[in-house]
Amino acid sequence: LFYALLLEFLPMKKSLIYLITLSLLFAACGKEQLSIGKGKAEDEIKKCNKLLDEKEYEDAVQCLEMFKSRYAHSSLAQDAELEIGDAYFDKKEYLLSAESYAAFIKLYPRHPKIDYAYYRTGTAYLRASPKAIDRDQEYLGSAIEYLNVVVYHFSRSPYVSLASKELYEALSRVARRDYYIGKFYYRTGEYLACIDRFKDISENYKPSGLADKSLYFITSAYLELGKLDDAKEAYSKMSVDYPESKWTKKAASKLKKYVRHIDNQK
């Protein structure tokens, strides 16, 4: 009824402005105003944690930022920095999350939760990378860098197992991307370029499940280039590392055909 009276007695444009203003005022009145800094740090941080638990991530970040500035000398301010990263992570704003965790690592390199910060930074960068291998993967390198720190420098951390799984996924994506590019080069006759890609996979990403396939394409590419000795060397590595692989058997068959073809031409 109140809105109806406004529309009746006010011009249309002014009525719309009044309605929007009133709506915003009512919304603001209905929302509890955030107040941080009047009590003990231990009590005030609970307000921010409550917002996190309620998944009010924007308010939680605002609360944590206010807490940091007003309790800068409290050890809880360091935890607040970490929790800001958690809020962005849970909100799926992974780049902001990664940046927050990375800032924490620079500020507090000796913090008891530094292993967690490295783990979450790497995971956030991995989540920020698209799963489609034909899309830009610029954050995978950062994901691998941070996750490696957990796996190789914090061997007793409770996050080692989780970090190892994320690291495997990150390395597998790099391998799949390089394999995709290598196959493209192979199909288009760019054999030297494809050999470089496949070598990288076979030497640095063995757990990806693509190393034996990569060695097969290296062998085949060398044969296409007429480099029999190099092809034999690649096959020799295959036969030692992957004796039961179907790709090793395919490479052996291809080598035999090539040698027979050369012998027939003599």
Rank of each mutant, 00 (worst) to 15 (best):
R187L: 06
Y101L: 09
Y118E: 02
L228C: 02
K31F: 13
L192A: 13
P109A: 07
A80Y: 00
R197G: 10
E42H: 02
Y71D: 03
A193E: 06
H153A: 06
E81K: 12
K256S: 15
T188M: 06
Q62W: 06
C194R: 01
E138W: 07
S35K: 14
E169H: 11
K55F: 00
T21S: 11
A251E: 07
S157Y: 10
R187K: 15
L223T: 01
L52D: 09
Q137V: 04
S253I: 14
L162M: 06
S202E: 01
R135A: 04
L107K: 14
K257C: 05
L76R: 08
A132H: 09
S172F: 02
G226T: 03
I36S: 06
A102E: 07
N264P: 03
S245P: 00
I105D: 03
K38S: 15
L7W: 09
F26M: 13
L22Y: 01
N49C: 01
M66N: 15
D200V: 11
K40D: 13
N148C: 08
L255Y: 00
M12K: 10
E8H: 13
Y258L: 08
R156W: 12
G39W: 05
I195T: 10
E244R: 13
E203G: 04
F154R: 06
R156Q: 13
S74F: 03
L7R: 12
D200N: 15
K113G: 12
A221F: 01
I114G: 11
K50V: 10
V150G: 13
A102I: 03
K55P: 01
Y125C: 03
R127P: 09
A193M: 03
I84Q: 00
I195N: 07
V149L: 05
L171P: 00
P243M: 02
Y242E: 01
I45L: 05
Y57P: 02
L16C: 09
C63S: 03
K206Q: 10
L223M: 00
D59Y: 04
R110A: 14
T188I: 05
I84F: 05
M238C: 09
S23D: 07
E44G: 00
S129C: 03
I84M: 07
L1C: 12
E145N: 08
K237S: 12
E56R: 07
G37N: 09
N264D: 05
Y3V: 14
A193I: 02
K165C: 04
T21N: 10
A80G: 02
P207V: 07
N148Y: 11
A251M: 05
E8Y: 11
M66L: 15
K237H: 07
F2Q: 11
K213S: 10
T248F: 03
A4T: 15
G39F: 05
E169L: 10
A27I: 15
V160I: 10
K199F: 08
A231Y: 00
S15Q: 01
L10R: 12
H261F: 09
M66H: 14
R110Y: 15
D59V: 03
G37T: 08
E83G: 04
